[in-house]
Simulated scan of single mutants.
Amino acid sequence: MMLVLTASMAISAPISVVDGSGHRVELQQPARRVVALAPDIVENLYAVGSGDRIVGRVSYSDYPDAARSIPLVGDYQRFNTETILSLRPDLVIAWFEGNPQAQLRTLEGFGLKVVRLSSKRIQSIPDNLRLLGQLTGNDAQAQVQASAFEARLRALKPEAGAVPTLFYQLWDNPLLTVSDDALIGEAIGFCGARNPFGDRPEAAPQVSLEAVLAVAPDLIVSTDEVGGGWQERWESWSVLPAVRNGALYSLHADLIHRPTPRFLDGVQALCEAVVDVRQRMKR
């Protein structure tokens, strides 16, 4: 009888976490009905074994395939409060840097628990996996996933060498890139390249064509999200070392833009591009 009582108390022990915004959030028990307000949050919940807890998602939450059948509540910038309330969630998990804070406060005003996750650093990925496991009672699987991520990240670190200048084209029109105050910006440094716009205060600064020509990147990296033809548009600027060396690389956007375990696939491709350019610079 005492053993049963002890187990019951352990299962119902309150959960207290400090989220990515620095706020403490407490749950009386692991969340069973979760609304996830970013595609990476959905993916990470599945990764820690809690995909079956998700009752609402935002658009583009399409991985794994099972996520596509979860009811939509809007997109990450504008979600429907009434729809979320109708799903009776015991937890809403939000993207601190992306979801509108006013709408999140509205949800809290209706009595919903809201946890905000930050995803600006590579280390935030395993940290968030552990946090999601804690919130949903799947600590063990979350720990396995987080530790595997950290081990693979260490293994991906390339050897030191020449430091090429890498221009990351986040978007085409307007021409957007990333600063070091962004997940991709950190990945550029991790792979041993220099981000010429790393010191910009915005996470996704707009730059001019003239500014890119002035920094003379050794390689230009973009994604399939930008669409076809971006490489051909750069090829007319033969003054660029990246163009002369044929160093225009396209990555899969979901792998390099989403802070999930798959992000390391994107980092690996990015590091391979940097290593390739180092070899080309020797010729």
Rank of each mutant, 00 (worst) to 15 (best):
I11V: 12
I11T: 06
I11K: 06
I11P: 00
I11E: 09
S12T: 15
S12W: 10
S12H: 08
A13T: 15
A13E: 14
A13W: 05
S16E: 12
S16V: 10
S16Y: 00
S16G: 01
V17M: 05
V17D: 07
V18P: 04
D19Y: 00
G20W: 01
G22H: 07
H23V: 01
L27G: 08
Q28D: 10
Q28P: 00
A31E: 03
A31F: 01
R32E: 15
V34K: 09
V34W: 04
A36Q: 11
A36M: 11
A36S: 15
A36L: 12
A36T: 08
L37A: 09
A38S: 14
P39W: 03
D40C: 02
D40I: 00
I41V: 13
V42R: 11
V42F: 07
N44K: 13
Y46M: 10
A47Y: 02
A47Q: 09
A47F: 02
V48F: 07
V48P: 00
G49M: 04
S50Y: 02
S50G: 15
G51P: 13
D52A: 15
D52L: 11
D52H: 14
R53H: 13
R53E: 04
I54C: 10
V55H: 02
G56W: 09
G56C: 12
R57H: 05
S61F: 07
D62W: 00
P64A: 13
D65V: 15
D65Y: 02
A66I: 13
A67K: 09
A67F: 05
A67H: 08
R68P: 13
S69I: 05
S69F: 01
S69P: 09
I70M: 08
P71W: 01
L72S: 14
V73T: 12
G74A: 07
D75G: 13
D75E: 06
D75V: 05
D75S: 11
